[in-house]
Design a binder for these strands. Structure first.
Ligand code: NAD
Ligand code: NAD
Lengths: 229, 229
DNA sequence: GCGACTTTGTTCAGGCGTTCACAAGCGGTT
DNA sequence: AACCGCTTGTGAACGCCTGAACAAAGTCGC
Protein backbone atom coordinates (compact mmCIF):
# COMPACT_ATOMS: atom_id res chain seq x y z
CA UNK A 1 0.00 0.00 0.00
CA UNK A 2 2.20 2.83 -1.26
CA UNK A 3 -0.09 5.47 0.17
CA UNK A 4 2.51 8.06 1.18
CA UNK A 5 2.36 10.28 -1.89
CA UNK A 6 -0.36 12.79 -0.95
CA UNK A 7 2.15 14.99 0.84
CA UNK A 8 2.45 18.36 -0.82
CA UNK A 9 5.80 19.36 -2.26
CA UNK A 10 7.09 22.95 -1.96
CA UNK A 11 7.77 24.58 -5.30
CA UNK A 12 11.37 25.33 -4.35
CA UNK A 13 11.84 21.64 -3.74
CA UNK A 14 10.32 20.72 -7.09
CA UNK A 15 12.84 22.91 -8.88
CA UNK A 16 15.68 21.16 -7.08
CA UNK A 17 14.24 17.72 -7.77
CA UNK A 18 14.54 18.54 -11.45
CA UNK A 19 18.21 19.31 -10.93
CA UNK A 20 18.79 16.05 -9.06
CA UNK A 21 17.09 14.20 -11.87
CA UNK A 22 19.50 15.62 -14.42
CA UNK A 23 22.52 14.76 -12.28
CA UNK A 24 21.20 11.23 -11.83
CA UNK A 25 20.76 10.83 -15.57
CA UNK A 26 24.42 11.70 -15.98
CA UNK A 27 25.46 9.25 -13.30
CA UNK A 28 23.37 6.50 -14.85
CA UNK A 29 25.07 7.10 -18.18
CA UNK A 30 28.37 6.83 -16.39
CA UNK A 31 27.40 3.40 -15.14
CA UNK A 32 27.14 4.26 -11.45
CA UNK A 33 24.75 2.13 -9.44
CA UNK A 34 24.65 4.03 -6.12
CA UNK A 35 25.20 7.56 -4.80
CA UNK A 36 25.30 9.08 -1.37
CA UNK A 37 23.37 12.21 -0.51
CA UNK A 38 26.68 14.01 -0.04
CA UNK A 39 27.94 13.28 -3.51
CA UNK A 40 24.63 14.05 -5.14
CA UNK A 41 24.31 17.29 -3.22
CA UNK A 42 27.77 18.36 -4.22
CA UNK A 43 27.03 17.73 -7.89
CA UNK A 44 23.76 19.60 -7.64
CA UNK A 45 25.25 22.49 -5.68
CA UNK A 46 23.10 22.16 -2.59
CA UNK A 47 23.34 21.18 1.05
CA UNK A 48 23.30 17.39 1.71
CA UNK A 49 20.76 17.72 4.52
CA UNK A 50 18.52 19.79 2.31
CA UNK A 51 18.74 17.22 -0.43
CA UNK A 52 17.65 14.45 1.90
CA UNK A 53 14.79 16.61 3.06
CA UNK A 54 13.75 17.20 -0.52
CA UNK A 55 13.80 13.49 -1.30
CA UNK A 56 11.89 12.67 1.86
CA UNK A 57 8.81 14.27 0.32
CA UNK A 58 8.67 11.27 -1.99
CA UNK A 59 8.83 8.88 0.93
CA UNK A 60 11.84 6.73 1.78
CA UNK A 61 13.80 6.04 -1.37
CA UNK A 62 17.30 5.31 -0.16
CA UNK A 63 19.00 2.54 1.78
CA UNK A 64 20.63 3.51 5.05
CA UNK A 65 24.31 2.84 5.19
CA UNK A 66 24.48 2.53 1.41
CA UNK A 67 22.91 5.50 -0.33
CA UNK A 68 20.47 5.79 -3.19
CA UNK A 69 20.08 3.50 -6.16
CA UNK A 70 20.81 5.68 -9.17
CA UNK A 71 18.28 4.13 -11.49
CA UNK A 72 15.73 3.66 -8.73
CA UNK A 73 15.87 7.25 -7.61
CA UNK A 74 15.88 8.49 -11.17
CA UNK A 75 12.69 6.59 -11.92
CA UNK A 76 11.09 7.81 -8.73
CA UNK A 77 11.95 11.42 -9.52
CA UNK A 78 10.81 11.10 -13.11
CA UNK A 79 7.51 9.83 -11.87
CA UNK A 80 7.11 12.53 -9.23
CA UNK A 81 7.83 15.29 -11.73
CA UNK A 82 5.15 14.25 -14.14
CA UNK A 83 5.99 10.87 -15.58
CA UNK A 84 7.85 9.95 -18.68
CA UNK A 85 5.15 10.84 -21.12
CA UNK A 86 6.11 13.33 -23.77
CA UNK A 87 4.84 16.84 -23.10
CA UNK A 88 3.92 18.69 -26.28
CA UNK A 89 4.88 22.37 -26.29
CA UNK A 90 4.15 25.26 -28.61
CA UNK A 91 6.61 28.09 -29.12
CA UNK A 92 5.40 31.51 -30.22
CA UNK A 93 7.83 34.05 -31.65
CA UNK A 94 10.55 32.40 -33.68
CA UNK A 95 13.14 35.19 -33.53
CA UNK A 96 16.67 34.88 -32.26
CA UNK A 97 15.79 33.47 -28.88
CA UNK A 98 12.90 31.36 -30.12
CA UNK A 99 15.07 29.78 -32.80
CA UNK A 100 17.70 28.86 -30.23
CA UNK A 101 15.09 27.16 -28.06
CA UNK A 102 13.46 25.34 -30.97
CA UNK A 103 16.84 24.00 -32.00
CA UNK A 104 17.88 22.86 -28.56
CA UNK A 105 18.20 19.12 -28.08
CA UNK A 106 18.25 19.22 -24.29
CA UNK A 107 14.48 19.57 -23.96
CA UNK A 108 13.47 16.52 -25.97
CA UNK A 109 15.63 14.29 -23.80
CA UNK A 110 13.51 15.31 -20.82
CA UNK A 111 10.25 14.66 -22.57
CA UNK A 112 9.51 18.19 -23.76
CA UNK A 113 8.84 18.25 -27.44
CA UNK A 114 7.97 21.23 -29.56
CA UNK A 115 5.01 20.36 -31.72
CA UNK A 116 4.38 23.83 -33.09
CA UNK A 117 6.41 26.92 -33.96
CA UNK A 118 4.45 30.09 -34.65
CA UNK A 119 5.33 33.55 -35.89
CA UNK A 120 3.75 36.51 -37.65
CA UNK A 121 6.66 37.53 -39.78
CA UNK A 122 6.09 36.33 -43.38
CA UNK A 123 9.86 36.12 -43.78
CA UNK A 124 10.02 33.58 -40.96
CA UNK A 125 6.89 31.55 -41.61
CA UNK A 126 7.62 28.49 -43.69
CA UNK A 127 11.25 28.17 -42.61
CA UNK A 128 12.34 24.94 -40.97
CA UNK A 129 13.77 25.32 -37.50
CA UNK A 130 14.82 22.31 -35.47
CA UNK A 131 13.02 19.91 -37.76
CA UNK A 132 9.75 21.79 -37.68
CA UNK A 133 8.18 24.23 -40.08
CA UNK A 134 7.22 27.65 -38.75
CA UNK A 135 3.51 28.31 -39.10
CA UNK A 136 1.54 31.55 -39.14
CA UNK A 137 0.36 32.59 -35.70
CA UNK A 138 -3.25 32.59 -36.90
CA UNK A 139 -3.14 28.81 -36.67
CA UNK A 140 -2.39 28.88 -32.96
CA UNK A 141 -5.82 27.79 -31.79
CA UNK A 142 -6.14 25.02 -34.35
CA UNK A 143 -2.65 23.78 -33.67
CA UNK A 144 -3.12 23.57 -29.92
CA UNK A 145 -6.41 21.74 -30.37
CA UNK A 146 -4.87 19.32 -32.82
CA UNK A 147 -1.65 18.55 -30.96
CA UNK A 148 -3.07 18.77 -27.43
CA UNK A 149 -0.13 20.94 -26.44
CA UNK A 150 -0.08 21.60 -22.70
CA UNK A 151 2.80 24.06 -22.43
CA UNK A 152 3.17 27.38 -24.22
CA UNK A 153 6.51 29.18 -24.52
CA UNK A 154 6.39 32.88 -25.36
CA UNK A 155 9.39 34.51 -27.05
CA UNK A 156 7.64 37.34 -28.80
CA UNK A 157 8.30 41.05 -28.26
CA UNK A 158 6.91 42.29 -24.94
CA UNK A 159 4.12 44.33 -26.51
CA UNK A 160 2.26 41.31 -27.86
CA UNK A 161 3.09 38.81 -25.12
CA UNK A 162 -0.13 39.39 -23.18
CA UNK A 163 -2.33 38.91 -26.22
CA UNK A 164 -0.49 35.74 -27.17
CA UNK A 165 -0.87 34.55 -23.60
CA UNK A 166 -4.60 35.24 -23.65
CA UNK A 167 -4.99 33.21 -26.80
CA UNK A 168 -3.08 30.30 -25.30
CA UNK A 169 -5.22 30.36 -22.18
CA UNK A 170 -8.42 30.57 -24.21
CA UNK A 171 -7.65 27.27 -25.88
CA UNK A 172 -6.79 25.48 -22.67
CA UNK A 173 -3.05 25.89 -22.21
CA UNK A 174 -2.50 26.16 -18.48
CA UNK A 175 1.29 26.18 -18.28
CA UNK A 176 3.21 29.10 -19.75
CA UNK A 177 6.89 29.95 -19.84
CA UNK A 178 7.43 33.61 -20.62
CA UNK A 179 10.66 35.21 -21.82
CA UNK A 180 9.17 38.60 -22.62
CA UNK A 181 9.91 41.29 -20.04
CA UNK A 182 6.33 41.84 -18.92
CA UNK A 183 4.20 40.50 -16.09
CA UNK A 184 1.47 38.40 -17.65
CA UNK A 185 -1.99 38.43 -16.14
CA UNK A 186 -3.73 35.08 -16.20
CA UNK A 187 -6.84 33.57 -14.60
CA UNK A 188 -6.51 31.37 -11.54
CA UNK A 189 -5.52 27.84 -12.43
CA UNK A 190 -2.95 28.89 -14.98
CA UNK A 191 0.74 28.79 -14.06
CA UNK A 192 3.22 31.21 -15.50
CA UNK A 193 6.95 31.10 -15.00
CA UNK A 194 9.00 34.02 -16.15
CA UNK A 195 12.61 34.06 -17.27
CA UNK A 196 14.02 37.55 -17.11
CA UNK A 197 17.62 37.77 -18.22
CA UNK A 198 17.93 41.52 -17.73
CA UNK A 199 16.98 41.08 -14.11
CA UNK A 200 19.64 38.41 -13.65
CA UNK A 201 22.30 40.76 -14.98
CA UNK A 202 20.99 43.59 -12.87
CA UNK A 203 21.19 41.50 -9.71
CA UNK A 204 24.77 40.58 -10.54
CA UNK A 205 25.56 44.25 -11.01
CA UNK A 206 24.05 45.06 -7.64
CA UNK A 207 26.01 42.32 -5.88
CA UNK A 208 29.13 43.55 -7.58
CA UNK A 209 28.60 47.09 -6.39
CA UNK A 210 27.69 45.95 -2.91
CA UNK A 211 30.90 43.96 -2.71
CA UNK A 212 33.07 46.89 -3.69
CA UNK A 213 31.11 49.60 -1.92
CA UNK A 214 30.33 48.19 1.50
CA UNK A 215 32.60 45.22 2.22
CA UNK A 216 32.18 45.41 6.02
CA UNK A 217 28.44 44.81 6.19
CA UNK A 218 27.81 42.11 3.64
CA UNK A 219 24.36 40.80 4.41
CA UNK A 220 24.51 37.23 5.78
CA UNK A 221 27.71 35.35 5.09
CA UNK A 222 28.46 33.28 2.06
CA UNK A 223 29.09 29.60 2.60
CA UNK A 224 32.82 28.95 2.53
CA UNK A 225 31.97 25.82 0.56
CA UNK A 226 31.97 27.99 -2.52
CA UNK A 227 29.02 26.27 -4.06
CA UNK A 228 26.86 28.54 -6.10
CA UNK A 229 23.13 28.68 -5.86
CA UNK B 1 23.27 64.06 4.94
CA UNK B 2 21.66 61.21 3.02
CA UNK B 3 22.97 58.59 5.42
CA UNK B 4 20.12 56.10 5.30
CA UNK B 5 21.61 53.75 2.68
CA UNK B 6 23.54 51.27 4.83
CA UNK B 7 20.50 49.10 5.24
CA UNK B 8 20.98 45.72 3.66
CA UNK B 9 18.67 44.72 0.83
CA UNK B 10 17.40 41.14 0.49
CA UNK B 11 18.30 39.53 -2.81
CA UNK B 12 14.68 38.79 -3.62
CA UNK B 13 13.96 42.48 -3.24
CA UNK B 14 16.84 43.41 -5.54
CA UNK B 15 15.40 41.24 -8.28
CA UNK B 16 12.05 42.99 -7.95
CA UNK B 17 13.64 46.43 -7.90
CA UNK B 18 15.04 45.63 -11.34
CA UNK B 19 11.52 44.85 -12.52
CA UNK B 20 10.16 48.09 -11.09
CA UNK B 21 12.93 49.97 -12.84
CA UNK B 22 11.92 48.56 -16.19
CA UNK B 23 8.27 49.41 -15.65
CA UNK B 24 9.22 52.92 -14.63
CA UNK B 25 11.31 53.36 -17.77
CA UNK B 26 8.22 52.49 -19.78
CA UNK B 27 6.06 54.92 -17.83
CA UNK B 28 8.62 57.68 -18.28
CA UNK B 29 8.59 57.11 -22.03
CA UNK B 30 4.83 57.36 -21.88
CA UNK B 31 5.11 60.79 -20.32
CA UNK B 32 3.70 59.91 -16.90
CA UNK B 33 4.94 62.02 -14.02
CA UNK B 34 3.55 60.12 -11.03
CA UNK B 35 2.49 56.59 -10.11
CA UNK B 36 0.87 55.04 -7.09
CA UNK B 37 2.21 51.89 -5.49
CA UNK B 38 -0.94 50.09 -6.55
CA UNK B 39 -0.53 50.85 -10.21
CA UNK B 40 3.18 50.09 -10.18
CA UNK B 41 2.60 46.83 -8.34
CA UNK B 42 -0.03 45.77 -10.80
CA UNK B 43 2.27 46.42 -13.73
CA UNK B 44 5.09 44.54 -12.06
CA UNK B 45 2.88 41.66 -10.97
CA UNK B 46 3.42 41.95 -7.24
CA UNK B 47 1.58 42.92 -4.08
CA UNK B 48 1.31 46.71 -3.47
CA UNK B 49 2.35 46.41 0.17
CA UNK B 50 5.34 44.34 -0.80
CA UNK B 51 6.34 46.89 -3.35
CA UNK B 52 6.27 49.66 -0.78
CA UNK B 53 8.33 47.54 1.57
CA UNK B 54 10.84 46.92 -1.19
CA UNK B 55 11.15 50.62 -1.91
CA UNK B 56 11.43 51.43 1.77
CA UNK B 57 14.87 49.82 1.77
CA UNK B 58 16.04 52.84 -0.20
CA UNK B 59 14.58 55.23 2.33
CA UNK B 60 11.48 57.35 1.76
CA UNK B 61 11.16 58.07 -1.92
CA UNK B 62 7.48 58.80 -2.41
CA UNK B 63 5.08 61.55 -1.42
CA UNK B 64 2.17 60.56 0.78
CA UNK B 65 -1.17 61.23 -0.71
CA UNK B 66 0.35 61.57 -4.16
CA UNK B 67 2.53 58.61 -5.07
CA UNK B 68 5.99 58.33 -6.54
CA UNK B 69 7.66 60.64 -9.01
CA UNK B 70 8.35 58.46 -12.04
CA UNK B 71 11.67 60.03 -12.98
CA UNK B 72 12.72 60.48 -9.37
CA UNK B 73 12.08 56.89 -8.45
CA UNK B 74 13.68 55.67 -11.64
CA UNK B 75 16.87 57.57 -10.87
CA UNK B 76 16.87 56.34 -7.32
CA UNK B 77 16.46 52.73 -8.41
CA UNK B 78 19.09 53.06 -11.11
CA UNK B 79 21.48 54.34 -8.51
CA UNK B 80 20.67 51.63 -5.98
CA UNK B 81 21.15 48.88 -8.54
CA UNK B 82 24.63 49.92 -9.48
CA UNK B 83 24.50 53.30 -11.13
CA UNK B 84 24.27 54.24 -14.74
CA UNK B 85 27.78 53.33 -15.69
CA UNK B 86 28.16 50.82 -18.48
CA UNK B 87 28.98 47.31 -17.29
CA UNK B 88 31.25 45.47 -19.69
CA UNK B 89 30.39 41.79 -20.15
CA UNK B 90 32.11 38.90 -21.89
CA UNK B 91 30.16 36.07 -23.47
CA UNK B 92 31.73 32.66 -23.89
CA UNK B 93 30.21 30.11 -26.26
CA UNK B 94 28.72 31.77 -29.33
CA UNK B 95 26.35 28.98 -30.36
CA UNK B 96 22.62 29.30 -30.84
CA UNK B 97 21.86 30.70 -27.41
CA UNK B 98 25.01 32.80 -27.22
CA UNK B 99 24.28 34.39 -30.57
CA UNK B 100 20.78 35.30 -29.50
CA UNK B 101 22.11 37.00 -26.37
CA UNK B 102 24.90 38.82 -28.24
CA UNK B 103 22.36 40.17 -30.67
CA UNK B 104 19.84 41.31 -28.09
CA UNK B 105 19.35 45.07 -27.82
CA UNK B 106 17.59 44.96 -24.46
CA UNK B 107 20.78 44.60 -22.45
CA UNK B 108 22.60 47.65 -23.79
CA UNK B 109 19.70 49.88 -22.83
CA UNK B 110 20.21 48.87 -19.20
CA UNK B 111 23.93 49.51 -19.28
CA UNK B 112 25.11 45.99 -20.01
CA UNK B 113 27.42 45.93 -22.98
CA UNK B 114 29.13 42.93 -24.47
CA UNK B 115 32.76 43.80 -25.05
CA UNK B 116 33.95 40.35 -25.98
CA UNK B 117 32.53 37.24 -27.66
CA UNK B 118 34.59 34.07 -27.40
CA UNK B 119 34.37 30.61 -28.90
CA UNK B 120 36.57 27.67 -29.76
CA UNK B 121 34.95 26.64 -32.99
CA UNK B 122 37.10 27.83 -35.91
CA UNK B 123 33.94 28.04 -37.98
CA UNK B 124 32.50 30.58 -35.55
CA UNK B 125 35.59 32.61 -34.72
CA UNK B 126 35.87 35.68 -36.89
CA UNK B 127 32.16 36.00 -37.57
CA UNK B 128 30.45 39.22 -36.61
CA UNK B 129 27.59 38.86 -34.17
CA UNK B 130 25.74 41.86 -32.85
CA UNK B 131 28.38 44.26 -34.08
CA UNK B 132 31.26 42.37 -32.51
CA UNK B 133 33.74 39.93 -33.95
CA UNK B 134 33.97 36.50 -32.30
CA UNK B 135 37.45 35.86 -30.92
CA UNK B 136 39.22 32.60 -30.08
CA UNK B 137 38.71 31.56 -26.48
CA UNK B 138 42.49 31.55 -25.90
CA UNK B 139 42.28 35.34 -25.76
CA UNK B 140 39.89 35.28 -22.79
CA UNK B 141 42.42 36.36 -20.18
CA UNK B 142 43.87 39.13 -22.31
CA UNK B 143 40.46 40.37 -23.29
CA UNK B 144 39.17 40.60 -19.75
CA UNK B 145 42.30 42.42 -18.64
CA UNK B 146 42.04 44.83 -21.52
CA UNK B 147 38.34 45.61 -21.33
CA UNK B 148 38.00 45.38 -17.53
CA UNK B 149 34.93 43.22 -18.00
CA UNK B 150 33.18 42.56 -14.69
CA UNK B 151 30.49 40.10 -15.77
CA UNK B 152 30.98 36.79 -17.53
CA UNK B 153 28.15 34.98 -19.31
CA UNK B 154 28.64 31.29 -20.02
CA UNK B 155 26.72 29.67 -22.88
CA UNK B 156 29.09 26.82 -23.65
CA UNK B 157 28.25 23.12 -23.47
CA UNK B 158 27.98 21.88 -19.89
CA UNK B 159 31.19 19.83 -20.02
CA UNK B 160 33.45 22.85 -20.37
CA UNK B 161 31.46 25.35 -18.30
CA UNK B 162 33.45 24.76 -15.11
CA UNK B 163 36.80 25.25 -16.82
CA UNK B 164 35.58 28.44 -18.50
CA UNK B 165 34.29 29.61 -15.15
CA UNK B 166 37.64 28.92 -13.50
CA UNK B 167 39.43 30.96 -16.11
CA UNK B 168 37.04 33.86 -15.67
CA UNK B 169 37.53 33.81 -11.91
CA UNK B 170 41.28 33.59 -12.25
CA UNK B 171 41.40 36.89 -14.08
CA UNK B 172 39.15 38.67 -11.60
CA UNK B 173 35.61 38.26 -12.91
CA UNK B 174 33.42 37.99 -9.83
CA UNK B 175 29.94 37.97 -11.38
CA UNK B 176 28.91 35.07 -13.57
CA UNK B 177 25.68 34.22 -15.33
CA UNK B 178 25.54 30.55 -16.25
CA UNK B 179 23.23 28.96 -18.80
CA UNK B 180 24.91 25.57 -18.85
CA UNK B 181 23.07 22.88 -16.87
CA UNK B 182 25.76 22.32 -14.25
CA UNK B 183 26.37 23.67 -10.77
CA UNK B 184 29.50 25.76 -10.92
CA UNK B 185 31.92 25.73 -8.00
CA UNK B 186 33.48 29.08 -7.26
CA UNK B 187 35.52 30.58 -4.41
CA UNK B 188 33.85 32.78 -1.83
CA UNK B 189 33.36 36.31 -3.06
CA UNK B 190 32.23 35.26 -6.51
CA UNK B 191 28.54 35.37 -7.37
CA UNK B 192 26.97 32.94 -9.78
CA UNK B 193 23.43 33.06 -11.04
CA UNK B 194 22.11 30.15 -12.99
CA UNK B 195 19.41 30.10 -15.63
CA UNK B 196 18.07 26.62 -16.13
CA UNK B 197 15.37 26.40 -18.74
CA UNK B 198 14.87 22.64 -18.46
CA UNK B 199 14.08 23.09 -14.79
CA UNK B 200 11.50 25.75 -15.60
CA UNK B 201 9.73 23.41 -17.98
CA UNK B 202 9.94 20.56 -15.52
CA UNK B 203 8.34 22.66 -12.79
CA UNK B 204 5.52 23.58 -15.16
CA UNK B 205 5.03 19.90 -15.94
CA UNK B 206 4.84 19.11 -12.26
CA UNK B 207 2.30 21.83 -11.57
CA UNK B 208 0.28 20.60 -14.51
CA UNK B 209 0.20 17.06 -13.20
CA UNK B 210 -0.55 18.23 -9.69
CA UNK B 211 -3.49 20.21 -10.97
CA UNK B 212 -4.99 17.27 -12.81
CA UNK B 213 -4.03 14.57 -10.35
CA UNK B 214 -4.89 15.97 -6.96
CA UNK B 215 -7.24 18.94 -7.32
CA UNK B 216 -8.55 18.78 -3.74
CA UNK B 217 -5.30 19.41 -1.90
CA UNK B 218 -3.55 22.09 -3.91
CA UNK B 219 -0.76 23.36 -1.71
CA UNK B 220 -1.40 26.96 -0.55
CA UNK B 221 -4.02 28.86 -2.51
CA UNK B 222 -3.42 30.86 -5.61
CA UNK B 223 -4.21 34.56 -5.45
CA UNK B 224 -7.51 35.22 -7.13
CA UNK B 225 -5.89 38.35 -8.52
CA UNK B 226 -4.55 36.15 -11.26
CA UNK B 227 -1.16 37.79 -11.30
CA UNK B 228 1.63 35.40 -12.06
CA UNK B 229 4.88 35.21 -10.18
C1' DG C 1 25.61 -14.17 14.87
C1' DC C 2 27.07 -9.96 16.60
C1' DG C 3 29.13 -5.41 16.65
C1' DA C 4 30.53 -1.26 14.70
C1' DC C 5 30.37 1.92 10.97
C1' DT C 6 28.04 4.30 7.46
C1' DT C 7 24.22 6.79 5.67
C1' DT C 8 19.50 7.85 5.63
C1' DG C 9 15.15 10.07 7.48
C1' DT C 10 13.29 13.23 10.68
C1' DT C 11 12.86 16.59 14.11
C1' DC C 12 14.01 21.13 15.76
C1' DA C 13 15.33 25.72 15.72
C1' DG C 14 16.62 29.89 13.23
C1' DG C 15 16.23 33.19 9.51
C1' DC C 16 13.86 35.21 5.52
C1' DG C 17 10.31 36.67 3.05
C1' DT C 18 5.55 37.93 2.52
C1' DT C 19 1.25 39.71 3.98
C1' DC C 20 -1.92 42.39 6.46
C1' DA C 21 -3.28 46.39 8.92
C1' DC C 22 -2.67 50.99 10.77
C1' DA C 23 -0.69 55.31 11.81
C1' DA C 24 1.69 59.28 9.83
C1' DG C 25 2.00 62.80 6.38
C1' DC C 26 0.83 65.63 2.39
C1' DG C 27 -2.30 68.09 -0.92
C1' DG C 28 -6.37 70.09 -1.97
C1' DT C 29 -10.58 72.21 -0.48
C1' DT C 30 -13.69 74.92 2.07
C1' DA D 1 -6.54 77.99 8.88
C1' DA D 2 -8.50 73.71 9.60
C1' DC D 3 -10.46 69.57 7.68
C1' DC D 4 -10.75 65.49 4.73
C1' DG D 5 -9.32 61.99 1.73
C1' DC D 6 -5.67 59.71 -0.33
C1' DT D 7 -1.25 57.32 -0.28
C1' DT D 8 2.97 56.18 1.74
C1' DG D 9 5.90 53.96 5.24
C1' DT D 10 6.35 50.70 8.90
C1' DG D 11 5.43 47.42 12.65
C1' DA D 12 4.01 42.87 13.67
C1' DA D 13 2.28 38.24 12.67
C1' DC D 14 2.36 34.44 9.87
C1' DG D 15 4.18 30.84 7.02
C1' DC D 16 7.89 28.89 4.29
C1' DC D 17 12.34 27.41 3.68
C1' DT D 18 16.94 26.44 5.02
C1' DG D 19 20.62 24.49 7.88
C1' DA D 20 22.09 21.55 11.59
C1' DA D 21 21.85 17.86 14.96
C1' DC D 22 20.15 13.24 16.25
C1' DA D 23 18.20 8.78 16.10
C1' DA D 24 16.89 4.72 13.30
C1' DA D 25 18.37 1.23 10.22
C1' DG D 26 20.90 -1.54 7.25
C1' DT D 27 25.38 -3.49 5.75
C1' DC D 28 29.92 -5.19 6.09
C1' DG D 29 33.49 -7.51 8.67
C1' DC D 30 34.78 -10.75 12.02
N1 NAD E 1 17.34 37.51 -27.49
C1 NAD E 1 17.65 37.58 -26.22
O1 NAD E 1 18.77 37.28 -25.88
C2 NAD E 1 16.66 38.00 -25.21
C3 NAD E 1 17.09 38.22 -23.92
C4 NAD E 1 16.16 38.60 -22.93
C5 NAD E 1 14.84 38.75 -23.29
N2 NAD E 1 14.44 38.53 -24.54
C6 NAD E 1 13.03 38.70 -24.86
O2 NAD E 1 12.58 37.61 -25.61
C7 NAD E 1 11.67 38.05 -26.59
C8 NAD E 1 12.18 37.66 -27.95
O3 NAD E 1 13.48 38.16 -28.14
P1 NAD E 1 14.23 38.00 -29.53
O4 NAD E 1 15.59 38.54 -29.36
O5 NAD E 1 14.11 36.62 -30.00
O6 NAD E 1 13.41 38.98 -30.47
P2 NAD E 1 13.18 38.85 -32.03
O7 NAD E 1 12.69 40.17 -32.52
O8 NAD E 1 14.39 38.28 -32.67
O9 NAD E 1 12.04 37.77 -32.18
C9 NAD E 1 10.69 38.06 -31.93
C10 NAD E 1 9.86 37.25 -32.90
O10 NAD E 1 8.49 37.35 -32.54
C11 NAD E 1 7.74 37.47 -33.74
N3 NAD E 1 6.46 38.09 -33.45
C12 NAD E 1 6.16 39.40 -33.32
N4 NAD E 1 4.86 39.57 -33.05
C13 NAD E 1 4.31 38.33 -32.97
C14 NAD E 1 3.01 37.86 -32.72
N5 NAD E 1 1.99 38.68 -32.44
N6 NAD E 1 2.80 36.54 -32.75
C15 NAD E 1 3.83 35.70 -33.00
N7 NAD E 1 5.08 36.09 -33.24
C16 NAD E 1 5.32 37.41 -33.24
C17 NAD E 1 8.60 38.28 -34.65
O11 NAD E 1 8.24 38.08 -35.99
C18 NAD E 1 9.99 37.74 -34.31
O12 NAD E 1 10.31 36.64 -35.14
C19 NAD E 1 11.55 39.53 -26.42
O13 NAD E 1 10.44 39.83 -25.60
C20 NAD E 1 12.80 39.89 -25.70
O14 NAD E 1 12.62 41.04 -24.89
C21 NAD E 1 15.33 38.16 -25.52
N1 NAD F 1 19.84 26.68 -26.89
C1 NAD F 1 19.00 26.61 -25.90
O1 NAD F 1 17.85 26.92 -26.07
C2 NAD F 1 19.42 26.19 -24.53
C3 NAD F 1 18.46 25.97 -23.58
C4 NAD F 1 18.84 25.59 -22.29
C5 NAD F 1 20.17 25.43 -22.00
N2 NAD F 1 21.09 25.65 -22.93
C6 NAD F 1 22.49 25.48 -22.59
O2 NAD F 1 23.24 26.57 -23.05
C7 NAD F 1 24.49 26.12 -23.51
C8 NAD F 1 24.65 26.52 -24.96
O3 NAD F 1 23.58 26.02 -25.71
P1 NAD F 1 23.54 26.18 -27.29
O4 NAD F 1 22.25 25.64 -27.74
O5 NAD F 1 23.86 27.58 -27.66
O6 NAD F 1 24.71 25.20 -27.75
P2 NAD F 1 25.62 25.33 -29.04
O7 NAD F 1 26.29 24.02 -29.24
O8 NAD F 1 24.84 25.91 -30.16
O9 NAD F 1 26.71 26.40 -28.67
C9 NAD F 1 27.78 26.11 -27.82
C10 NAD F 1 28.97 26.93 -28.30
O10 NAD F 1 30.03 26.83 -27.38
C11 NAD F 1 31.24 26.70 -28.10
N3 NAD F 1 32.24 26.09 -27.24
C12 NAD F 1 32.46 24.78 -27.01
N4 NAD F 1 33.49 24.61 -26.16
C13 NAD F 1 33.94 25.84 -25.86
C14 NAD F 1 35.00 26.30 -25.04
N5 NAD F 1 35.76 25.49 -24.33
N6 NAD F 1 35.18 27.64 -24.97
C15 NAD F 1 34.40 28.47 -25.66
N7 NAD F 1 33.39 28.08 -26.44
C16 NAD F 1 33.17 26.77 -26.55
C17 NAD F 1 30.88 25.89 -29.29
O11 NAD F 1 31.82 26.09 -30.33
C18 NAD F 1 29.51 26.45 -29.63
O12 NAD F 1 29.61 27.53 -30.51
C19 NAD F 1 24.51 24.62 -23.30
O13 NAD F 1 25.14 24.35 -22.09
C20 NAD F 1 23.08 24.28 -23.24
O14 NAD F 1 22.86 23.15 -22.42
C21 NAD F 1 20.74 26.03 -24.21
Amino acid sequence: MPQSRPRIIPEATVARLAVYLRVLAGLADGGRSHVSSGELASAAGVNPAGLRKDLSYLGPCGVRGVGYSVSGLRDRLTDALGGERSRPCVLIGIGRLGSALADYAGFASRGFEFVGLLDTDPATVGHRVGGLQVRPVQELEALVAETHATIGVITTPAEVAQSVCDRLVSVGVRSILNFAPVALTVPAGVDVRKVDLSVELQVLAFLDQQRDGTPPLLAPLRAAQGVAR
